[in-house]
Amino acid sequence: MMKRSTIAAMGAIALAGCGGGDASDRPSPAPAPAAAAAAQPAETSASIVTSVDWIAVDEGARTVTIDLVAGSTDANNRWNFNGYANGEATVVVPAGYTVTVNFENRDPVMYHSVGVLERQASYPAVFDEAPPVFDGAITSNATSLTEATAPGGGTETISFTAATAGEYALVCPIPAHAVTGMWIGFDVSESGESGLRT
């Protein structure tokens, strides 16, 4: 007796799962993807710009100071900027501001550099040249394996005007570095936004 009722119950469950049974007993369908998307806020966390202690903005002087550190963490085999690599974060500065980048290389072994370059879907293993998008927006000997900013605490400061709004990138153009992820976004905002987008 017990076996027959168990089998009957399982059959009823299977029938309901396949569409049998009264329509009023079925759960209402999930909203269509478009309707679900419309219910979500338009702004995602990736579009929110937040303040961080290594980006200082002086609106009166129209300046931005960025303390950018290569190899600050073990992320991406130390080939990172302030712990970010592979475009995981984007520095945002207002258009027309003078930007000073205080660059430090804490990687104990490798030379690193930084330049504001065109943002690309992928970067070459070796840069024939690495022209910055703004005059002065690149460290010295930026493509050299032995003459860029020295490992173990080497520093360099660059300064430039973020003259044109757009989406760019902070890139290490030393051979093999950018192609393996040593780059983050650098956006120049017409709206005056500043900070870090993650």
Results as ranks from 00 to 15, higher is better:
residue 93 V to E: 04
residue 73 T to W: 05
residue 66 I to E: 07
residue 87 G to T: 06
residue 93 V to S: 02
residue 100 T to A: 03
residue 46 A to W: 11
residue 100 T to L: 03
residue 46 A to F: 12
residue 72 S to Y: 07
residue 97 Y to V: 05
residue 63 T to R: 09
residue 64 V to Y: 08
residue 84 Y to F: 12
residue 56 A to M: 13
residue 54 W to N: 09
residue 62 R to F: 01
residue 44 T to W: 00
residue 66 I to A: 05
residue 95 A to L: 13
residue 96 G to N: 03
residue 49 V to I: 13
residue 91 V to M: 04
residue 88 E to K: 11
residue 57 V to F: 04
residue 78 R to P: 08
residue 79 W to N: 12
residue 52 V to Y: 03
residue 103 F to I: 07
residue 71 G to I: 12
residue 95 A to M: 15
residue 69 V to S: 11
residue 70 A to E: 10
residue 51 S to M: 02
residue 51 S to V: 03
residue 51 S to N: 08
residue 64 V to E: 09
residue 53 D to P: 12
residue 56 A to P: 04
residue 84 Y to N: 08
residue 99 V to A: 01
residue 72 S to H: 05
residue 82 N to V: 00
residue 45 S to Y: 10
residue 99 V to I: 00
residue 97 Y to M: 04
residue 57 V to M: 02
residue 87 G to Q: 04
residue 47 S to M: 14
residue 78 R to H: 14
residue 100 T to V: 05
residue 81 F to T: 03
residue 52 V to R: 08
residue 47 S to G: 13
residue 59 E to T: 15
residue 49 V to A: 10
residue 104 E to K: 15
residue 42 A to V: 14
residue 78 R to A: 12
residue 48 I to H: 09
residue 96 G to A: 06
residue 87 G to R: 01
residue 48 I to E: 11
residue 49 V to D: 05
residue 65 T to I: 09
residue 77 N to M: 10
residue 44 T to V: 01
residue 93 V to I: 04
residue 92 V to A: 09
residue 72 S to G: 11
residue 44 T to P: 00
residue 102 N to D: 02
residue 91 V to L: 07
residue 61 A to L: 14
residue 86 N to L: 12
residue 101 V to Y: 01
residue 68 L to Y: 06
residue 70 A to G: 13
residue 83 G to V: 05
residue 72 S to E: 13
residue 59 E to H: 13
residue 85 A to P: 06
residue 48 I to D: 07
residue 74 D to A: 14
residue 57 V to I: 11
residue 101 V to W: 00
residue 45 S to W: 08
residue 65 T to W: 02
residue 55 I to G: 01
residue 93 V to G: 04
residue 82 N to S: 03
residue 99 V to E: 01
